[in-house]
Nucleic acid binder design. Structure first.
Lengths: 242, 242
DNA sequence: CGGCGGCCTTGATTTCGGTCAAGGCCTCGC
DNA sequence: GCGAGGCCTTGACCGAAATCAAGGCCGCCG
């Protein structure tokens, strides 16, 4: 991964605090000795929205842990049509093991802080510690499940179901405690309307219209174009098409 | 995985010949001793089109290797809308490690022959042999790449691009030697029109119309509704939307 | 302040693909 | 052979979402 922004701080790497939070980070799998080794080569970075983290077909030379913020994974057709194929929240792991080139782009959707490691270090440790590979395997299986869920949304849901599903997905990722029982939640959208459209396979206008409809139907409120309050969680769920 | 058809033969398991063919099978990762252990508990089976191999939310108690034929992985919404989220060709591995329940359905699209193992046996071996886990990890990464490629098709391509992409994908999987250079290929469609529609997020009628268009434009020929001959590979590729 | 550029919303119109409906073609079993 | 059922094709029509176009809101910078 080539981080195109200057490294913000290469001081004491933060590594694992936030990783532990949701038990999906890399670091918990390592013994203290390995951690120290990794710490030496890792660096914490802060990246502004819109910065490209991994370019398509570009040689990837490091892996990262997302510490905060949201990273969007995109693919494009040659004529410019774009599709977001995944979102990574903290503490997801960023990078494609066992391949020199990435087939996708990764871009900061919000301000993102990252902890990155040289590819070689991670791969060496993966050989030594099956537990690390096991963790990454599990994350990959989760991503596969998520991708397949999303394929159903892309292929079979209407525009309004797509938008409702998107809001639910974001709510659940930002506030993991939210579930059907919750009456309401609120959160900041990590994506612009254009991003949401690219995620849902829609146009900006359609996304906007559907959000307006949810607003006029009192299912959600939106302040500042970014801050969403779900007024009626179960109504939103009903509109997401199961 | 519950195979709902009677086991065809529990004699000498075939295990690995066809797995080796494309280097994605489970078995190559095992040492001879492990292979013998696995052979004792495995069984080869033949499954007819339409048979369900893994039911949604059903307890999965075995894994399988696909030896021949095509398995479709599907997900459904509560109202019956369905989406195919993946196709497995020989020698893919079938089953979701580390989860008791499957979130998807698996169904034989063609006649399928399988070699299945008790879940417990595979998981024990995975612990003993990191090389096995490594293989499964790699297949999972491939499936993730494929799922993401397909998300672009679902979200951003037109109906005619979808159908062209589908034909190319099938051609490449059935005859791995096919590439851009090839002028033409021919193969049997492993899916019905209804399946293709569920795979592409379209209706049967739209799939049929697009196939007709490809036929009248002399890009393909179709015999018996199943046997497809691509007359002009590069023309098909151009229609697939890159 | 005022103008510019991003981002979002809204309306009018078009179009692609879905829906509804009819009919053709095979295969299989009688 | 003949009829039934499954699968596929074709046509007419309709509607959801795309496209085209205009304008609003807001933050930023001169």
């Amino acid at each position: 991964m080539t981080v195109r922004q200057d490294v913000h701080s290469a001081g004491i790497p933060v590594l694992c605090q936030s990783c532990e939070a949701r038990h999906r980070g890399v670091c918990g799998a390592l013994d203290p000795e390995q951690l120290v080794g990794l710490a030496k080569t890792s660096s914490k970075q802060q990246v502004k929205p819109g910065m490209e983290l991994i370019g398509d077909a570009e040689t990837v030379d490091c892996y990262s842990n997302v510490l905060s913020g949201v990273v969007k994974l995109t693919k494009s057709l040659s004529d410019g049509r774009q599709q977001i194929v995944g979102l990574q929240f903290a503490p997801d792991f960023l990078g494609r093991p066992f391949k020199a080139e990435s087939a996708i782009n990764a871009e900061a959707a919000t301000t993102v802080s990252l902890c990155s490691f040289p590819k070689a270090a991670i791969e060496r440790m993966m050989k030594e510690s099956p537990e690390l590979e096991h963790r990454l395997f599990k994350q990959t299986l989760n991503e596969l499940d998520e991708a397949r869920d999303w394929m159903v949304t892309l292929g079979r849901k209407s525009a309004s179901e797509k938008v409702a599903s998107f809001l639910l997905m974001i709510a659940k990722n930002i506030d993991p405690a939210v579930d059907a029982a919750a009456e309401s939640t609120s959160f900041d959208l990590p994506l612009t309307r254009a991003d949401i459209a690219d995620f849902l396979g829609l146009t900006i206008e359609t996304v906007s219209r559907q959000l307006t409809r949810l607003r006029t139907d009192s299912v959600i409120r939106i302040d500042n174009n970014r801050h969403v309050t779900v007024e009626n969680m179960s109504r939103l769920e009903r509109r997401s098409g199961a």
